[in-house]
Simulated assay, not measured.
Amino acid sequence: MVGPTAILLVCCPDQRGLVAKIAHFIYSHNGNIIHADHHTDGVADLFLTRIEWEVAGFALGRSHIAEAFETYAQEQGLFPRPEEVRWHLDFSDRVSRLAIWVSRQDHCLLDLIWRQRAGELRADIPLIISNHDQNRAIAEQFKIDFHTIPVNPDHRVEAEAQQLKLLQTYNIDLVILAKYMQILSPDFLGQFSQIINIHHSFLPAFAGANPYQRAYVRGVKIIGATAHYVTQNLDQGPIIEQDVVRVSHRDDVTDLVRKGKDLERMVLARAVRLHLHNRVLVYGNRTVVFA
C-alpha cells in the first residue's frame, strides 16, 4: 500500500521538455512517481500537470521540497516567464479544515457530514455558519460548533467581519456553501477566496435565484446541479463538477426540487473530494480536473 505522497500542481506557458524536466527533479531526489497527468490548452498555450510521488525514500524533507523545486526551476529555465506560472505543492495526508455554511435546507449539510464521518472526505469539520438557526440541532448532534450570523443589507459588513473572524479562529482552509443562499461581497472574497458553492442548475443555464421554477416554466427535459468556485460574478466561477437528470411533462416544481436535491448532494460531494485531493487546477475562469 502506498504511504503518504507529495502532489505538485503546475500551470505555466507551454514549452518542450516540461514533463521531462519536472520528472527529473523528482527522480534526482530518489522520488518514485505513482501518478502523472498532463494537459495542454492549445488555445491559451498553457501546460497543466498534476504529479504525485511517494514521500518515503525521497531525499528532501517535506519542508524543503518547495524551496528546492523553485531553485531547480530557476536553474533549468523551467519557467521563462515566471510571472505567468502558478504552482502548488501539497501532501496526501494533510487534513484540511472545512467550514460549512447553510441557510435553512439541510440535505447537503447532512450529506457532507456523513461522508466525512465515513472517511470519504479527508477533512475535519469544526465549524458550521448559518444565517438561520434551523440546523443547530444537526450541529449539536455531531458535536460541531454552530454560529448563527443573520445577514441583511444594512448589516452585511458587520456580518462578514464576524464570519471572517471565525474562519481565522478555526483555522479554516475551505468554505463550502451548502445551500447558503447568500451573495458574498467582493471585500470578503478578497480576504478569503477558497470557497465552493453548489448551484441548483446546470450552469450557465438558470443562474441566480429560483432555477427550478424557471426551468419548469421553460419546459426543460433535463435539470442539473453545478459545483463551482465562488468569484465576484454570481454563479460564474470556475466549474468543478456538474451532473444532470431527466425530467418530463409529468413533473411539477416539487418533483424538480426533489430530483435536484439528489443531484446537489452528489455533485457537491464529488467537487469537495476533488478539491481535497488536489485534482483541480484553475486557470482563468476554467478548470482542468485530473479525476
Rank of each mutant, 00 (worst) to 15 (best):
R214Y: 01
A227I: 03
G224L: 06
Y229I: 01
H228D: 03
N233H: 14
Q213Y: 14
Q236F: 01
V220M: 00
G237F: 02
K221C: 07
G219L: 09
Y212W: 14
Y229A: 10
A225M: 00
D235L: 11
Y216I: 10
V230A: 00
A227L: 06
Q232M: 12
Y212I: 07
G224H: 03
I239W: 05
A215S: 11
G219H: 03
G219M: 10
P238A: 12
G224D: 02
I239E: 07
L234W: 05
P211W: 14
I239F: 04
N210C: 07
N233L: 12
I222E: 10
A209M: 13
V230Y: 04
R214C: 03
D235W: 07
N210R: 12
G237S: 08
Y216A: 12
G224E: 02
G219N: 05
I222S: 00
G237Q: 06
Q213S: 12
P238R: 06
D235R: 05
Y216D: 06
A215D: 02
T226S: 14
G224C: 04
V220Q: 00
D235F: 11
Q232K: 13
A227F: 03
V217E: 15
R214W: 01
Q232P: 05
G224F: 04
T231A: 04
A227Q: 05
G224S: 00
V220T: 02
Y212K: 05
N210D: 15
A209Y: 08
T226E: 05
R218T: 14
A209F: 09
T226W: 12
P238E: 02
N233Y: 12
D235G: 09
P238M: 02
A209D: 04
Q213M: 09
K221R: 10
I240H: 08
P238T: 09
G237K: 03
T226A: 10
G219I: 13
R218E: 06
V217N: 13
A225F: 02
V217M: 13
G219T: 13
V230S: 04
I222F: 13
A209H: 11
Y212L: 12
A225I: 02
V220K: 01
Y216L: 13
V217F: 07
A225R: 01
Y229E: 05
P238Y: 05
D235E: 03
I240Y: 06
I239P: 01
H228R: 12
L234S: 08
Y229C: 07
